[in-house]
């Protein structure tokens, strides 16, 4: 390991909708906008596809942060998927906040296909916020999980 990786690096999972945010991520690439390499991307058809259970499961599996990103309100490829998602995520956020999971473990963003710059910025900000929180110790499973030691 070289020097810059000897410090702790957060591992972040991002669910990106295929039509806007995933395309925005591609655009960030095409534009060669640099951002930290801590985020792993799962492509889903729509932010409405994201079951809150995925987010919880990812946290239990020891991921340090989760981002869900979809089309801006009104721009959903599936018309209303992101609206439904927004209500669900709001509920999840309320719940996680209340039980005391750190604000920033789970984050949400709207990134359009044209917003490569915003995507890169979101990546940097999400990474920084999670880095500032430190490793996910609250919801991560300790038994039998080599990743969360």
């Amino acid at each position: 390991m070289n020097e810059q990786h000897s410090e702790w690096q957060p591992r972040i999972l991002a669910f990106l909708c295929n039509w806007c945010s995933y395309a925005g991520a591609d655009l960030a690439g095409v534009s060669r906008l640099q951002y930290p390499p801590n985020v792993r991307i799962v492509r889903v058809p729509c932010s409405g596809r994201v079951n809150p259970g995925y987010i919880l499961k990812a946290l239990q599996e020891g991921v340090d942060g989760v981002l869900v990103s979809g089309c801006h309100p009104g721009d959903c490829h599936y018309l209303t998927g992101n609206y439904h998602a927004r209500r669900k995520f709001r509920l999840l956020k309320e719940l996680l906040d209340f039980v005391g999971v750190e604000d920033g473990r789970v984050q949400f963003a709207w990134v359009s296909a044209a917003e490569g710059a915003k995507f890169a910025q979101v990546m940097a900000e999400v990474t920084e916020k999670v880095r500032a929180l430190g490793p996910n110790r609250r919801l991560a499973k300790k038994i039998g999980n080599p990743k969360s030691q």
Partner: peptide, 9 residues
């Protein structure tokens, strides 16, 4: 369409 959006970037 006007649901709370504050928690989303």
């Amino acid at each position: 369409t006007d649901d709370c959006n504050e928690f989303i970037r």
